[in-house]
Design a protein around this nucleic acid. Structure first.
Length: 804
DNA sequence: GAGTTTGAAACT
DNA sequence: CAGTTTCAAACTC
């Protein structure tokens, strides 16, 4: 079943589906339309904030029926979740509990591995519950471990017959990877390289500082294959990293009792074998599931380095593409056999602080949508919102799918070039009907006993499945379905039927409901400002969860912003958005910066503001009006210029007449760019050779330097003050260190002064010369000091002895 | 903080 | 498309 109608698919912007091309996957089977292919296009992007020309596809469709969700019994006897860490903190999941339900045919392979630095001579110990499936190879040169993934016996045979694509666990630097996922006969290469502890830190031994990696494998049936090699096989793990493998049997509902966010993405890589697969930082703790049959081999690559060795692996691959930013994970799934889609990838921004995440990438069989199931982790979920960044060559362009922990019904997608997050809303009633049964390829998320992954304080929990949350940014014939187990279905955004689908998805303004899922009931997409996602993220979880209605963000000053006015996200995020002061526009016209930037008003000074969820109807109408007037209204104004021109220029040009384009009235100047040929300004002084501009720039630079210096000085002073304050506190508990300055109390000072005065009187009475009087006073002062010091030292010693 | 200036957005 | 009005930010005092 297509979550989104083909019509909507055509309307959806390519950006949402585009990701960096990683590999090409030749269409293998007709009808396997889980992923659409788009020819890679390297044509320059007109706007720097626009989506990269490279084809990026995100296909999320639900093919699971409600019955599957409801009926899927937690019967995967062989399903086991085990995690073995170097810290000897195994995590296991009872097979009885169904955590994830995948395609019946899909076989689950389990690998519980413990790895340490091979250089140190530490061998890898495995706790695999299943038999080890040879061959298992380790490449010390490239730190790769190639494992044959066999989901089932058939899969094994198929893999052997076709020279199955080994699963590669690649470690680069301090990363490790994991897992086996996939469908029988479809070897998956999973390459995970985690440069940062990232999510893994929450899973592994909290005492261990070494990066930890957790792998969740969602498999099919009871037959499990041990992924990680037997004794003697060594995984080269740098710096004693810990590898954790989690296997989740199919039909096993994933439940998370914790607020943990699961990011589900599906991407299709039609080009498969392309060696150019870039490797980006990958976050551990994600589940990659591939279930599409007919594909000889597929690879899921999770990598943190910028270059990938993936080309060594033949066959189709599901790759988690390279990310320039260590905080992102790109997942590229193999297109369905029939799909001629080129490549699809999703870049998932990994926020370590967000806690553990499970990324599920499932390749459905031809014509069957892929489901991605996520659950939430009860443990240490810092933020209720998890964002998924898809595509984008650089770090500035993201596509984000954000399951909202507190808002189970909402998933958001950030589209490059768009300043909005697209949110799909799924009601609880429709959750069950989201997926269509698509035969064996259909996967459903099931709930079962809570699965806890990780040890110590950091752990991942899977709780019984609840309403399913789905997102289909760009529904395809065989869509991928993102399913997130939620404890409760809530509508963050009105899941009203799509009033009108905009021709260009990227132009959709905030709050726009894209489309209801066919037959899905109250399932739709809502477009909300990208910043609103941040607002949600910053909104206390309790607040979100406690309210049935979407609470208006409050108290949030800083809002993450997408590239705006030519500023990078970092630049824009570094400074909070200015609150608007609209009085007459109701913040529903482009006069309002909040509205124009795709943001909800938050902590603004506006009057009669309608730029909020409480006035969604009016807001949607206003958005539509703006788009009717100007389809580019919500696109960034600052984009790339033509060759030979500045990299950044105003898309429309300014029309300044009196400011000389050297004041912030000028949009070009405000964006810190020079006017271009398309500007219609009069008396422009905002050009390269302009002395006025240079002068202003110098002044601005000088002012900035001063500000920085002042800031540094303030920081230093504050630090000193803080330190001084700490000094005033008696250091009793510590065995050494500072003297107890507080012994110089008022009484002590008075007593000292009395002593000194008495000495002065004595000198005066004895008619001592002034010099001698001063000497006597100073001498007495020295005696006083000595007494104070002695007393302090004695008291300190007494305190220390008491503490001991 | 009030008033003025400015230019984009909205309107005709 | 051009001219005018409206609007809110930028700027000045």
């Amino acid at each position: 079943m297509d979550v989104v109608s083909p019509e909507l698919n055509s309307l959806l912007p390519d950006e949402i589906m585009d990701t960096e091309a990683i590999e090409d996957l030749p269409p293998s089977q007709p009808g396997g339309g889980a992923v659409q292919s788009q020819p890679s296009d390297d044509t320059p992007v007109p706007m720097e904030t626009d989506t990269p020309a490279a084809s990026e596809h995100l296909s999320l469709c639900s093919d699971a029926t409600s019955a599957e969700h409801a009926k899927a019994p937690p019967t995967s006897s062989g399903a086991t979740l085990s995690i073995s860490t170097a810290s000897q903190l195994p995590i296991s999941i009872s097979s009885t509990s169904s955590l994830l339900t995948l395609k019946p045919a899909m076989v689950t392979s389990l690998a519980a591995t413990k790895t340490t630095d091979s250089l140190s001579g530490t061998s890898i110990s495995t706790t695999g519950l299943q038999r080890l499936t040879p061959p298992f190879t380790i490449s010390a040169a490239n730190h790769q471990i190639i494992l044959n993934k066999v989901a089932s016996a058939q899969a094994t045979e198929a893999a052997k017959s076709i020279g199955s694509q080994p699963q590669v666990f690649k470690q680069e630097g301090q990363k490790l990877l994991v897992t086996t996922i996939g469908k029988s006969g479809q070897p998956i290469m999973l390459q995970v390289a985690g440069g940062k502890p990232g999510v893994s830190q929450t899973l592994g031994d909290h005492k261990s500082q070494a990066p930890q990696f957790k792998v969740v494998t969602i498999g099919g049936r009871s037959e499990l294959k041990q992924v990680v090699g037997s004794a003697g096989n060594q995984l080269t793990t740098l710096q004693g990293q810990q590898l954790k493998a989690v296997q989740i049997a199919t039909k096993t509902p994933v439940s998370s009792a914790a607020p943990i966010k699961y990011i589900i993405t599906k991407t299709v890589n039609s080009k498969g074998l392309s060696p150019q697969t870039s490797v980006s930082p990958v976050i551990t703790g994600r589940v990659l599931t591939q279930t599409s049959p007919g594909i000889p081999s597929r690879t899921i690559t999770l990598s943190e380095t910028l270059n990938s060795n993936m080309q060594s692996i033949s066959g189709k691959k599901i790759a988690i593409s390279p990310l320039k930013s260590p905080s992102k994970v790109t997942v590229v799934s193999v297109a369905s056999p029939t799909s001629n889609a080129t490549q699809k990838s999703m870049t998932l921004p990994v926020n370590v602080a967000l806690g553990q995440q499970i990324l599920t990438v499932q390749q459905s069989t031809s014509g069957s949508p892929v489901k991605l199931a996520t659950g939430q982790n009860t443990a240490q979920n810092i933020k209720p919102v998890q964002s998924v960044t898809m595509g984008g060559v650089g770090g500035s362009q993201f596509k984000t799918i954000i399951p909202l922990g507190s808002q189970p019904n909402v998933q958001q997608i950030q589209v490059p070039g768009s300043r909005f997050h697209y949110v799909r809303l799924v009601t609880s009633t429709t959750a069950s009907s989201l997926g269509h049964p698509s035969g064996p390829s259909t996967s459903s998320l099931q709930t079962a006993k809570p699965m806890v992954v990780g040890t110590g304080a950091a752990r991942m929990s899977v709780v019984p499945a609840q309403p399913v949350k789905q997102m289909a940014p760009k529904p395809l014939t065989s869509g991928a379905v993102v399913t997130t187990a939620q404890t409760q279905q809530r509508l963050i955004m009105p899941a009203t039927p799509l009033p009108q689908i905009q021709p260009n998805f990227t132009n959709l303004p905030p709050g726009t409901v894209l489309a209801p899922a066919p037959g899905g009931g109250n399932v739709g997409y809502a477009v909300v400002p990208a910043q609103y996602v941040t607002q949600l993220q910053q909104t206390p979880f309790v607040t979100l969860a406690s309210s049935s209605t979407f609470p208006a963000p409050a108290g949030v000053q800083t809002q993450a912003r997408l590239p705006l006015n030519g500023l990078s996200p970092a630049e824009t995020t570094s400074r909070p958005r200015k609150p608007c002061n609209c009085t007459k526009s109701q913040c529903l016209k482009l006069y309002c910066d909040c509205f124009a930037n795709g943001e909800f008003c938050n902590n603004c000074n506006c009057n009669n503001c309608f730029n909020n969820l409480e006035h969604e109807t009016e807001r949607l109408k206003a958005i539509k009006t703006c788009l009717d007037r100007n389809p580019e209204a919500f696109k960034p104004k600052i984009g790339k210029g033509k060759q030979g021109e500045s990299d950044r220029r105003h898309s429309k040009g300014c029309n300044c007449k009196r400011s000389g384009c050297l004041k912030n009235y000028c949009e070009c100047y405000e964006a810190k760019i020079m006017c271009s040929s398309i500007c219609k300004c009069i008396g422009c002084k905002n050009f390269e050779e302009s002395p006025e501009r240079k002068t202003l720039m110098h002044l601005a630079d000088a002012a900035e330097v001063r500000v920085q210096q002042q800031t540094a000085a303030k920081t230093k002073l504050s630090s000193q003050i803080s330190d001084l304050l700490m000094r005033t506190t008696p250091v009793i508990s510590s065995g050494g260190g500072r003297l107890p300055y507080t012994f110089v109390t008022k009484e002590v000072l008075e007593a000292t002064c009395e002593c000194l005065l008495e000495q002065a009187k004595k000198a005066e009475q004895t008619h001592q010369p002034q010099v001698e009087a001063e000497r006597m006073i100073l001498e007495e002062f020295g005696h006083c000091l000595m007494r104070i010091i002695n007393s302090a030292g004695k008291a300190k010693a007494d305190c220390a002895s008491i503490n001991c």
